[in-house]
Lab assay of single mutants.
Amino acid sequence: IRCIGVSNRDFVEGMSGGTWVDVVLEHGGCVTVMAQDKPTVDIELVTTTVSNMAEVRSYCYEASISDMASDSRCPTQGEAYLDKQSDTQYVCKRTLVDRGWGNGCGLFGKGSLVTCAKFTCSKKMTGKSIQPENLEYRIMLSVHGSQHSGMIVNDTGYETDENRAKVEVTPNSPRAEATLGGFGSLGLDCEPRTGLDFSDLYYLTMNNKHWLVHKEWFHDIPLPWHAGADTGTPHWNNKEALVEFKDAHAKRQTVVVLGSQEGAVHTALAGALEAEMDGAKGKLFSGHLKCRLKMDKLRLKGVSYSLCTAAFTFTKVPAETLHGTVTVEVQYAGTDGPCKIPVQMAVDMQTLTPVGRLITANPVITESTENSKMMLELDPPFGDSYIVIGVGDKKITHHWHRSGSTIGKAFEATVRGAKRMAVLGDTAWDFGSVGGVFNSLGKGIHQIFGAAFKSLFGGMSWFSQILIGTLLVWLGLNTKNGSISLTCLALGGVMIFLSTAVSA
């Protein structure tokens, strides 16, 4: 259960009878995928790494000078000259100064003066180019299975845990398959586009800190620079940016070097996208990844198990997540596992009318040892309800109150669905055939309105939902006002479609 501690969480529900669903994975976010007769899966884009970055340009932001020398000439005696002028490691300046009897010249006039100092770069920052084909995306998957609280967001041991898996995709191999043991396998067909235009970005490294910066900004930095990788004795261009020549006297000129420019660069980098280094690879934390999940090989585990009949206890007080759902960790005293956990939410304890829904599909106890633990997640209705676990006299209950409203949740879900469709863009549509167009249209309606429909009408039977949709269509056909007619027709059509397409 990876997503319960992530604030940016998206719930995606598969269409009834569908074998695939489109998701948008982004750094700092987590996606929970639910479908009829399929286990619930949490998917998170953990890291995006980039390798084989080529150094484009380096800037010196802290330097020192040494070996200063000057040469001067009297008027009419030609130009002052130093051998160091031809050495690229030196920074030199030529000027004219007033000369006369007082400073060793027989004539009054302008004399030539040249001053040089050896330039040494102490600290530099480097910009590297990123090729999209060198990106690698690491995705962690977790099935809502027989897990306890100690396994949440624990990325170790996934090789031997059938509840978890790690997959890596690249532009050259965008397809992967996550093996989930008894739950089958989940196929991923990803489109490795981060949403960032790397043709316009460089990877900047300064003092063990890293950013993504725009090329134009990078090339306009007014500091000494050299092109390409460091060859040991780089040729620094624009050395004068960190060196200041003071007022010249008759035979000498003082040279000083400016202080470190790291603070000024940090100020200019305010708002830039931060990154990290992992050995020789860069780690990015921006952008998104679009994936199509193929769920035809994914299956529920323990459908044929019998119900657990022994007593359950709450190991922890049920807690609310950031998303309005409830996490419950229970301990089973029996030894008759594997068995299914009898769990439901009810409005009252007399009729036990089921409300809400299970995020953890078909929760089971897989071990036959005593005191096995299991964590599950529920989506309670707004208002008061009861969490009921167990059967008969051994069942345990917990009162729950959820604040908020169904309308607010439906609106929030619609906005999130619209954002998801905007990110998917043209990849969500198939114009290759008439059937493809209608299929894409259905998927689009489901992406945007599916979660809201589930919130508003999830407790009704599909037949009642179709009746309401048919009534809206009838009202649309018999209303003389054009805008009201079109609105009723659209709402009725969407409702009829979703009542037959969205899983219960």
Rank of each mutant, 00 (worst) to 15 (best):
A69P: 00
T397V: 12
R357Q: 06
H219M: 09
G444N: 13
S70I: 10
R73P: 03
G337W: 13
D161Y: 07
P380G: 01
G150R: 02
D230V: 14
G127E: 11
S433F: 04
L289Y: 02
N208I: 00
G324H: 11
D384Q: 08
I496W: 11
V303W: 01
A272H: 11
Y90G: 08
V243C: 15
A451C: 08
S304Y: 15
L242D: 08
N134E: 07
G493K: 12
L498K: 09
R164H: 14
Q147T: 00
V415N: 12
L298E: 04
I130A: 08
C190Y: 11
P354N: 14
R9M: 11
V355P: 00
M495T: 14
I396Y: 00
M295R: 04
F218L: 12
R299A: 03
G476S: 11
G450S: 06
L456F: 13
M151L: 13
E177P: 05
G493E: 04
L358E: 04
T353Q: 14
T40N: 06
L212T: 04
G436N: 10
H144D: 07
D348I: 00
S70G: 03
E367R: 00
C116I: 05
G442E: 08
D384A: 03
T47P: 00
T487Q: 10
I468E: 03
V328M: 13
I389D: 09
D197Q: 06
T49L: 03
A333S: 14
I359C: 06
T313I: 12
G184Y: 08
W101C: 00
N208E: 02
T470K: 12
L472A: 13
L242C: 07
T48E: 06
L489C: 14
G78N: 04
C60M: 10
T231I: 10
A275I: 02
V33I: 08
K297M: 11
V21C: 05
G458N: 11
T327F: 11
G432S: 15
V317R: 00
H210N: 12
Y90D: 12
L242V: 07
M140A: 14
A451P: 13
V91N: 11
C105A: 04
L212I: 13
V24M: 11
G459P: 04
S433C: 02
G279T: 01
L212P: 02
N172D: 11
G263A: 07
G459D: 05
E377M: 08
V330P: 05
V437M: 15
E412Y: 13
N481P: 10
D296M: 10
E191K: 12
L135W: 06
E244N: 14
A311N: 02
V31R: 00
R299F: 06
L322W: 07
I466D: 09
N478C: 10
G78Y: 07
V91C: 12
V317K: 03
A422H: 01
L107W: 10
T353S: 13
L289T: 02
A227G: 12
M277A: 02
L180F: 01
T353Y: 02
V97K: 03
W429H: 10
A504S: 13
L472G: 02
G232M: 09
A275F: 02
S72V: 03
M349T: 15
T254S: 15
T479G: 08
L486K: 06
Q465E: 11
Q447T: 01
Y90Q: 09
K209S: 07
N134L: 03
V33L: 15
K123C: 04
V213E: 08
L486N: 03
I466A: 12
N481Q: 06
H214Y: 13
F411G: 02
I466K: 05
K373F: 06
D67P: 00
S455R: 12
K215C: 05
A280K: 00
G302I: 09
S385I: 09
S464H: 13
V243W: 08
L135M: 15
G450Y: 09
W211E: 09
G279Y: 09
W236L: 01
V473N: 03
G482N: 13
S385Q: 12
S372Q: 03
L471M: 12
L293R: 03
H27N: 10
V31G: 00
G337V: 01
K123E: 08
C30S: 11
D83W: 02
A410H: 06
S368K: 00
S122T: 07
E55G: 01
F449V: 10
A418Y: 08
L467R: 03
G109C: 07
G127S: 01
L491P: 07
Y305F: 08
M421P: 05
M349C: 01
D87P: 00
M375F: 15
R357D: 08
E244A: 09
K316V: 00
G334K: 08
K281E: 08
P132D: 14
G392Q: 15
T366H: 08
Y81H: 15
G287R: 00
L196P: 12
V434R: 01
A165G: 05
V502F: 10
Y202L: 06
A241Y: 07
G404R: 00
P174G: 05
E320N: 06
W429E: 05
T19V: 03
H27F: 04
E276D: 14
G425K: 06
W474H: 06
M375A: 13
G106C: 02
T397Q: 04
F457P: 12
S142F: 03
H148Q: 14
K419A: 04
G450C: 11
V423S: 12
F453P: 13
F431Y: 08
L212W: 13
V494W: 12
G29V: 01
E412N: 09
S368L: 00
S306E: 00
K480D: 01
E240A: 09
I396C: 12
I407W: 11
P222N: 10
S185C: 04
R193Q: 10
V256Q: 15
G492P: 04
A229L: 14
I468K: 00
G390P: 03
A80L: 04
S149F: 15
S173C: 06
V46D: 12
L242N: 05
I139W: 09
D230G: 13
